[in-house]
Design a protein around this nucleic acid. Sequence first.
DNA 1: TCGCGATATACACCACAGCGTATATTTACA
DNA 2: TGTAAATATACGCTGTGGTGTATATCGCGA
Lengths: 83, 83
Amino acid sequence: MADLARTPRQIGTIIQRTRKKRGWTQSDLAARAGLRQATISTIETAETPAKLDTILAVLAALDLEFQIAPRSLGDNADIEDLF
Amino acid sequence: MADLARTPRQIGTIIQRTRKKRGWTQSDLAARAGLRQATISTIETAETPAKLDTILAVLAALDLEFQIAPRSLGDNADIEDLF
DNA sequence: TCGCGATATACACCACAGCGTATATTTACA
DNA sequence: TGTAAATATACGCTGTGGTGTATATCGCGA
């Protein structure tokens, strides 16, 4: 089930949760994503909003991906199109 | 149905498609997102990877949102967890 | 085809994310 | 409790994305 991600904070939380689920340290994830441990730290705590490609790299390293969906309809939004 | 968004280019395409569906110009979208028309242009053409909060602002203006889901399982990924 | 709205580009400037390096500080476990 | 691993911070530097202003180019309807 896809997690909602409207803010950098929510994104950071999801990344951290998934990383721990994989049993990886921040350094592990950093190495796989081609980043520094410190960068993972700032992303997870959402200290500063990251760059899009940085987040995409982290998600890829975690075997995750973004999806884009209509907001107002909730998760089970399967409505064909928003007019 | 949620669109997959693994690259800045895919994200730009989805944003453009949704904007046109709304019947908005780049200037319209820019105004609603607190950005410039030129910025919308570079995002849609994926000329340069944007910042995360910029993309989030554009998505919000379009009443869209990110979701985060496992990559390898396709869209109907409802599997409990990928630990 | 003409003209105007829509989109793409240009240039100087500023803000800031991520880097390298390094060190606090916290957490977990023997 | 002590200590090593894991995480959070620090500092100067660099690359670059977004801004303001402005213009060039494209596309489409009359």
